[in-house]
């Protein structure tokens, strides 16, 4: 199953990836090959196999509800490209 160029562009946009023409082409081809391999896997009869939601043999890993010390405001903002008045400053949020 091939993936269309438009679909790759759509996914790239959703992931905020700015891809060059060459990258776009290469990724379309590579993603197509991955999907083709999925077609191979699909031939396995899985009717009696429960779906795998998690690969580790773990469940119910929980912590108790206790408050632990947080980072200081200064430490929290240290990596921010811009900060002001104790907050992360970001460009105006636009929608759509």
């Amino acid at each position: 199953m091939a993936i269309s160029r438009a679909e790759v562009e759509h996914i790239a946009r959703l992931a905020r990836l700015g891809l060059s023409e060459e990258e776009m082409e290469a990724l379309t081809e590579q993603l197509g090959r991955i999907l083709a391999h999925m077609e191979v896997l699909r031939q396995v009869d899985t009717r009696d196999v429960p779906p795998t939601y998690h690969v580790l043999p773990l469940q119910n890993v929980l912590r108790t509800d206790t408050v632990q010390e947080s980072l200081s405001q200064e430490a929290a903002l240290r990596n921010a490209p811009q900060a002001e008045a104790g907050a992360f400053k970001v460009p105006k949020i636009t929608e759509g």
């Binding site: 992360f88 970001v90 105006k92 949020i93």
Partner: peptide, 12 residues
């Protein structure tokens, strides 16, 4: 409002 704001500030 959200449409006229020039910058946004984030409190996490």
């Amino acid at each position: 409002n959200i449409a006229s704001a020039q910058a946004s500030y984030i409190d996490l």
